[in-house]
Amino acid sequence: MTKLQKNSIAVLNARSAFDGNEGKEALDVALIFGSYEQYVSLFFQGEGVRQLIKGQQANLINAKDYLATFSALEFYDVENIYACLTSLEQRNLAADFHINNVNVLTEQEFSDKLRQHKTVLRF
């Protein structure tokens, strides 16, 4: 059994970058918890893995470029970032991300890692 991190929060992203506001809201939540020095991790599954892919240009569709804000995560000590390998493979996506320190995990590893968190918020 994996060890539970006390008062830990997992933010599970399931939407692509510009499908509604969920991606930005999830990032805001992670940064807020990070600013209060809470243990927070970011998970990307399903269409959510698209948020991580390098080379997106929000300005072309008049959308806010919140993806640039991902680079702030390390300043708030949000260093636990996990992407689902199966989700990447199903979409023929390479692990070519616009942020560093993304850990690509198999389904089992992804599940195990998520279970180490007390609270899971899915966006």
């Binding site: 059994m1 994996t2 539970l4 399931a14 599954q45 399903g46 269409e47 689902c84 199966t86 389904e107 992804f110 599940s111 998520l114 279970r115 180490q116 899971v120």
Partner: peptide, 26 residues
Amino acid sequence: MSILHLVRTSAYQHDDLAQCLQLFND
């Protein structure tokens, strides 16, 4: 750590259930 999964959408229209089952521990 056990998880109770609340599934609120139809798998015929959304992939929420499929993603749930990726993490599901029976």
